[in-house]
Nucleic acid binder design. Structure first.
Length: 599
RNA sequence: CGGGGCGUGGCGCAGUCCGGUCAGCGCGGCUGCUUUGGGAGCAGUAGGACGGAGGUUCAAAUCCUCUCGCCCCGACCA
């Protein structure tokens, strides 16, 4: 855009040019002027965005949508991405991990070899080349990584090894949403560790867990590391890193007294209170129109926990199974799937329930059924429960498992809730919401065995390599940061992830004294390595303030006729709103110090 | 994939039920003058043929059919 600096005094333009020429060691400029900088801000909320981070990232000129779940990162966003990548690199490199870059396009054969071709299903974006050969766009890189290692790693002497990359992944999500929070195309840092044995693999896992803790701490995020289910990636154990935010899609259980934390899907639950009742004979009771637990409990005058909910599930690779759980409890589908080993369970349709058990919805009974029966441990000690009879309008009271009906197996199947006993210390747990930004898995030998990645051991025999894999969603982490830290006016960046550290606002660009002072400050800040944008646009103060709040850089420095007359500038901290007047001569140094303290 | 909502200048929307009077409003853009510490005022100006394709009709943004896309709620994930 325009090349002069308003009505600056002689030398003003030279100072600005000097500032603009300074770069960090990676070649990234410390300073930018807002005029001509491609960060188009929007005055109104975009119709497509619901979630705060999504809305604000669009409004602040950080991202633009190209197609569903596919976004362009505009210059300011890319700066934040690079910063996060630098934080991640430092943490991984210092632990001996080595960066490489694998292809995004992968031969489908690799996926057939690991068997994940089928398991990933339509989420794996497939394509054919001109010869008709099958490829996929990598949703993750275990296969390629394993392939690379099996070709060139032959001996235990080559291990341990930890390789990582920053890669654009593609997952054809059923429903992309919330902007960068769940995109189809996204940048992921994925690392893979290779060890000769399980103990060494554990050490690699611990090192990565530690690296992740360091990374998210450095980012200035409030987060928790929780025990997690290992899901589709497979493997023996895993932790998720959750950024705490009310809008998070994940629920996590944590114990303030002992520090236990787990994804709600995974959280163990045992020994919670149920109404056991007193041993009594099975009795058939008329319960007209009492279909749901709360009404039924009220009607019978018993606590909800003494009602035994009978739910019919159909397993993905198996038949039906009847699942019993106390009436005041919710079923945890992940735990159920893991307990039953028959693939993913699905709640039977009312019609199916009728066909399989002969009972109308709400009156399914475990009494006399011929299909397998699995129950939550809460049911185990019940002496007098309430169950259906299989007949509309009638329930049994006094039902006792083992005496009145068969239970084939007891498991931990219930969803943890606030106040439940902690599985470690028994203290009451808390429930919080989080955004999953990182996930570490101990994979074991699942991939190395399937794909023949083996090494020679010291004793001359060969064994499969023990693997681990570790991911961080780069865009998601930044979106999560915005989600965790914003207000009605815009984003409130933590210093380490902010696209720039300071915004410099000369309020009267036509005033030579103001522009002169701003240009000097701009140069001084850049020279001190403070990343600064100069709002040199000839706009009214109000607009500049609004835009500054929206973009949310941590420090805002205002230079105006008023302040310059007193030889000062105004420093405002975005997060706290705290305002300090600084002498112009020493402002740059003071701002730098403030920046350094926040990093 | 099931359920709900929506596609009209760059952005946000009205108009659609009850075809014609319809292509409109706010913001933004551009020009000029005034203004300059919290999204300025006035005047002027450019810009869309109503997601796309068929159809009904003298006449379609509006009715019908098909189709594409987007957003939200559910089952998956960094």
């Amino acid at each position: 855009m325009e090349n002069d600096a308003g009505a600056g005094p002689p030398g003003c333009q030279a100072l600005i040019d000097e500032a603009l020429s300074l770069t960090d060691p990676a070649g990234e400029p410390y300073a930018r002027r807002l005029s001509g900088y491609f960060a188009p801000t929007l005055k109104e909320d975009p119709a497509e965005a619901e979630l705060a981070s999504h809305r604000l990232m669009i409004r602040a000129g950080l991202i633009r949508r190209l197609a569903g779940g596919i976004y362009t990162y505009l210059p300011a966003m890319l700066r934040s991405i690079r910063k996060l990548e630098r934080i991640v690199r430092r943490a991984l490199n210092s632990r001996g991990a080595q960066e490489l870059l694998m292809p995004a396009v992968q031969p489908l054969e690799l996926w057939q070899e690991s068997g994940r071709d089928r398991k990933y299903g339509p989420e794996l974006l497939r394509l054919k080349d001109r010869h008709g050969r099958d490829f996929a766009i990598g949703p993750t890189h275990e296969e390629v990584m394993t392939d690379i290692v099996r070709r060139d790693v032959r001996s235990f002497r080559d291990l341990p090894l930890n390789l990582y990359q920053f890669q654009t992944k593609f997952r054809d999500e059923i429903r992309p949403r919330f902007g960068l929070m769940r995109g189809r195309e996204f940048i992921m840092k994925d690392a893979y560790s290779f060890d000769t044995d399980s103990e060494s693999a554990n050490a690699s896992y611990r090192a990565m867990h530690e690296a992740y803790t360091e990374i998210f701490t450095r980012c200035g995020l409030r987060f928790a590391s929780v025990e997690a289910d290992s899901g589709a990636i497979g493997g023996s154990f895993s932790h998720e890193f959750m950024v705490l935010a009310d809008s998070g899609e994940n629920t996590l259980i944590s114990c303030p007294s002992c520090g236990y934390a787990a994804n709600q899907e995974k959280a163990e639950l045992a020994g919670y209170p149920v109404a056991r009742g007193e041993e009594s004979p099975l009795a058939r009771v008329h319960t007209p129109d009492q279909r749901h637990v709360p009404e039924l409990a009220g009607f019978l005058g018993v606590p909800e926990s003494s009602i035994i909910k009978s739910m019919l599930f159909v397993l993905e690779d198996g038949g039906p199974v009847l699942v019993l759980i106390p009436g005041d409890r919710e079923i945890n589908l992940v735990k159920l799937e893991n307990a039953l080993a028959g693939g993913r369970p699905r709640l039977a349709e009312p019609g199916e329930a009728l066909a399989i058990t002969g009972a109308p919805p709400g009156f399914v009974t475990p009494v006399g059924v011929r299909i397998p029966v699995a129950a939550d441990r809460g049911v185990e000690g019940m002496l007098a429960g309430v169950v259906g009879t299989g007949e509309e309008g009638w329930h049994y009271t006094g039902a006792r498992p083992g005496r009145d009906f068969r239970v084939d197996s007891y498991h931990d199947l219930a969803l943890s809730a606030a106040g439940d006993p902690c599985p470690r210390c028994g203290g009451p747990v808390e429930v919080r919401k989080g955004i999953e930004v990182g996930h570490v898995f101990k994979l074991g030998t699942r991939y190395s065995e399937a794909m023949g990645a083996r090494v020679a051991l010291a004793d001359g025999t060969e064994a499969p390599i023990f693997m681990g894999c570790y991911g961080i969603g780069i865009g998601r982490t930044i979106a999560a940061s915005v989600e965790q830290s914003h207000d009605k006016d815009g984003i409130v960046w933590p210093m380490p992830l902010a696209p720039f550290e300071a915004a410099l606002l000369p309020l009267q660009t036509q005033n030579p004294a103001v522009m002169g002072a701003a240009a000097r400050l701009f140069r001084d800040l850049a020279a001190l390595g403070v990343e600064t944008v100069l709002d040199d646009r000839d706009e009214r103060p109000g607009l500049k303030f609004k835009d500054a709040d929206l973009l949310g850089l941590p420090l805002r420095v205002t230079v105006s006729e008023r302040s310059v007359a007193r030889g000062e500038c105004e420093l405002r901290e975005r997060a706290t709103g705290k305002v300090t007047m600084l002498p112009l001569e020493t402002a740059a140094a003071a701002i730098r110090e403030l920046r350094d303290r926040a990093l």
